[in-house]
Each structure stands twice: as structure tokens, then as C-alpha cells.
Simulated scan of single mutants.
Amino acid sequence: MNTPDTGGAALDLEALRSFVTIVQQGSLAAAAEQRHRTVSALSMQIKRLEERLATRLLIRGPRGVTPSPAGEVLLREARELLRQHDGLVGRLTGQGLSGRVRFGMPEGYAPQLVEQVLPDFLASHPSVLLEAVTAPSGELARRLERGDLSLAVALDRPHRVAGGEPLWKTSPVWAASRDYSIDQHAPLPLALHPLDCPFRSLGVEALEARGREWYAVFTSTSIHAVEKAVEVGLAVSILDRQRLTPSMRVLGEADDLPELGESQACLYFSRRIAASSWPAVEALAVMLRRRLSQVGPWHGVW
């Protein structure tokens, strides 16, 4: 069997790593710091890739760099190629991935991620030191910016972080107990998370836009405590539709409640990841993308 002649168009794996890092970080400067190289060195790598492939890969704008259509295609293929390459090297040398991965996730989605993603990751990479934490999305965003986390799955509000990769759209709804009756002339009693919660922001923004008065009758950092407050009829809350129990019902315009806006769950990388830990961080990111993209944690094919 003859091997196809590619005209010597072999790709530099290290240049591919730089390309992936630039897209993830959103700028050459941040990627250079991540890769422990100069900006000019990364620019030269990208230039050689573009010359080799005879196409433009990155588009430079006022907010950083984004992949071109051809770059989007290369990004998907490069991630898989690097994953396979690193896995092959690890198997042949007996040196699997190592390093430290600090992963953050919102509490409302933690049970599914803890049960169905993290054990598989650790089973595949037993030498990796994984540290997983839960916190509201706003707090996760701040921890990422401080460098306290390597990567996180978080909602894109109330504290927005640049460079997030969309995973799935959430389904926020107004939730109340089955027999809850709303007094449309009285302030709406709410069960809420603290200020860092994206669903709290969605609900409060919608109510204030409608001019509807409200007050927090119950506030807790625990999603289970908020859900219990809804189930027993203490208050109304904003929950992901998938978290509704048989004791709850969805409220809407018929109950004089405004439509809620959208919120996107995204995958975010820290701008400060040790080079020795980067392959392990990317390996977890690959697994999260595969299992959460489009479908989220509720309907994925595990």
C-alpha cells in the first residue's frame, strides 16, 4: 500500500500546541506566558503553520485573537492529534500524565460531574493530582482570574470572563411548590443563592425590568436548601428546569412573572497554568467537551 505524498507538509506538534494555547487564552501574550516562550517565537510558529497550510489561522482584533474558519477546523483536529500523541508517548514510555489540576464547577451541576466525569478522568490518569471544588459561577470566575483554579465549568454571568468555550445552554425557570399561590399585588418572596449566582441575576434583572417588587425570604449557598424552600412553599426561586422535583411546578406569564433570559455554561481556562500540568489540564478539558458539549450534564451519552 502506497503512502499518500503530502509534499512534505508535516505539521510541527509544538506549533500546534502553541496554536491551541493561543486560541484558548485569546492572546499571544497570555499564550506566550503559558508556553514559557516569547511572543515573537509564538508568532513565528503560527506564521510557519499558516505558510505550511496555505491559509490564515488567526484573526487579530481589538479584543485579542480568534480562529478563522480554517483555524476552527484545525483547532478541533489539533486537540485530538495532541491527545493521541501524548497518550501514545505515555503508554510507550510508561509515563502517563502527571501534574496538578484544580477544577471548579457550580454546585447545581456538581453531582453529575463528580459521578460521571471525574472518576473516569482519574482512572485514565491516576498520577494526576486532581483538586475539585464547587462555588457559584461568579466566585469561580474570580478564582480563575486569581490563578486559584486551572479550569472551570461556569455560567457566563454575573461575572463574565473572556475566552470561555460554550458547552451548553441552561434552562432557567421560575419554580414553586405544586400548591403555591402567588399574590400578584404583594412583593414576590424569593429563595436565592448569594450575589454570585447567575440564576439570581437572571431573576432579579427580569423582575426589576418588569417593575415587580420582590424580597429574599430565604438565602443559602446550598442548592439543596434553596430547593427545599421551594418544595415546602416558603418561596419562589429560579432553578434549572432539570432540577425540578415532582413537588414543584413551573411559573410563567400566567402568574405575572417575566420571561427569564438565557445563560450559557462555558469551559474556562486559567491564564496561569504550570507547563508541567498543562497536558493534564487539557486532558480533563477534552473529556468535559466530549461529554457536555450541546447536551450538558443531564442528557449526555456517557
Rank of each mutant, 00 (worst) to 15 (best):
N2M: 10
G7K: 04
G7C: 11
G8Q: 03
D12T: 14
E14Y: 09
A15G: 13
R17A: 07
V20D: 00
G26M: 08
G26W: 10
A29D: 02
V39W: 08
V39G: 05
S40P: 05
A41T: 13
L49V: 02
T55G: 01
T55N: 04
L57R: 07
L58K: 07
L58Q: 15
I59P: 13
R60H: 07
R60Y: 06
R60D: 08
P62Q: 06
G64M: 05
T66D: 03
T66R: 15
S68E: 13
E72W: 10
V73E: 14
V73K: 14
R76L: 14
L81D: 13
L81Y: 15
L81W: 10
Q84A: 03
Q84I: 08
L88W: 15
G90M: 11
L92C: 08
L97Q: 03
L97V: 00
R102C: 14
G108E: 03
A110H: 05
P111F: 12
Q112D: 13
L113D: 13
V114M: 01
L118Y: 14
D120F: 05
H125F: 05
P126K: 04
S127H: 12
V128K: 12
A132L: 04
V133P: 00
P136G: 09
P136V: 06
R142Q: 13
G147I: 03
L149W: 06
L149Q: 10
L151A: 00
R157G: 02
V161C: 07
A162P: 06
G163A: 10
G163R: 04
G163W: 07
P166R: 14
P166L: 15
W168Y: 14
W168Q: 04
K169G: 07
P172T: 15
A175K: 05
A176T: 11
R178N: 09
Y180R: 07
S181H: 04
I182G: 04
A186R: 14
P194L: 08
D196C: 04
C197G: 01
F199P: 07
R200C: 01
R200N: 11
S201K: 12
L202V: 09
L202Y: 09
L202F: 02
L207T: 15
E208V: 02
R212P: 02
R212N: 11
E213V: 14
A216H: 11
F218V: 11
S220L: 03
H224E: 07
H224V: 11
A225N: 01
V226I: 12
V226F: 13
V230M: 02
L234Y: 14
V236L: 02
I238C: 15
L239S: 14
R241D: 08
Q242A: 12
Q242E: 12
R243Y: 00
S247I: 11
S247E: 13
M248C: 06
L251V: 07
G252R: 02
E253V: 15
A254Q: 07
G261C: 06
A265F: 06
C266Q: 11
L267T: 15
Y268P: 15
Y268H: 15
F269N: 09
I273Y: 10
S276E: 15
W278S: 12
W278D: 10
A280I: 02
A283F: 08
R289D: 01
R289Q: 08
Q294R: 12
V295D: 05
G296A: 08
G300K: 01
V301G: 02
